[in-house]
Amino acid sequence: MIDTGQILVNSLVTSSLYLLAGTGLTLTYGLSRFPNFAYAEFITIGAYCGLFFLAKPGGFFLLALVLGFLIAALVGASSYSLVFRPLVERKTSLIHLMVASIALGYVLRHSIGEGWGWATKSYQLMWPVYNIGHVRITLLWIILIATAVLAAVVLHFFLTRTRTGKAIRAIASNPDLASVTGINKQRVILLTWSFGAGLAAMAGVFRAADTRLSPMLGWDILLPIFAITMLGGIGSFYGLIVAALILGLAENFGVVLLSGIGLSTEYRMAIAFLILIGVLVIRPKGLAR
């Protein structure tokens, strides 16, 4: 039997995860104008930072989130200032920037593989399960949804009410004009890279808590994250929210549909791919622009 309520809850969980994971990607993509494929590893780093607190029972989940955020923010900031900023200053081509980001991804991923091994691990955490009518929801999911909503609200006020937030939008829409008006571009970009990586790391902690950890954790959800970045429109945070909701619904209803017509549920990823191709064919600018 198909329980619509349960699917809606599952969709909301998926959307929240993608939203947290995608925010930094779309903002840095909009500012720096190239996709950072090493972004997958920012997510993974968060998940493995969580292990410091959650490898044994009785750890504090909140501490894992905070540590993941801080470490990934540091990695994000240093990867921008050590790798990408020097490349941008040398007027490196777009393809070279993407190759560099993939190379950085391998450096980070295999460092994680060296440090923690390639075998899957899991957090020692038990989450209480609540049943509301037919619908099953865990405390982890509630925290995840609340975090995503909170992040969205905070970011909304940040982008519209603060000078730095306005500067981010200004640079994304017209970098030259922004420079002329005296915005410190480098400071704003660096801040966005570290903040975005931090949010991605939090998504990684949630993903690891909900499933398992492996050095491929981030890479495995990179495709849906790129799909919502494109669907929402590169650089648009509001577009991303709508896109994350759409993909969350599409994936969870899609999975039910897939098993209904006898196809493997492994095709979950293919749904994101179809959306990605659809966006490129019909509306490459995405929803928001």
């Binding site: 490196t92 070279h96 190759v99 190379a103 950085l104 391998y106 450096v107 295999h110």
Partner: peptide
């Protein structure tokens, strides 16, 4: 692992 870390660094250095 070390090989891929080094390849990654090599690419960044070359670029």
């Amino acid at each position: 692992n070390v090989q891929f870390v080094l390849f990654g660094l090599l690419i960044i250095f070359l670029l």
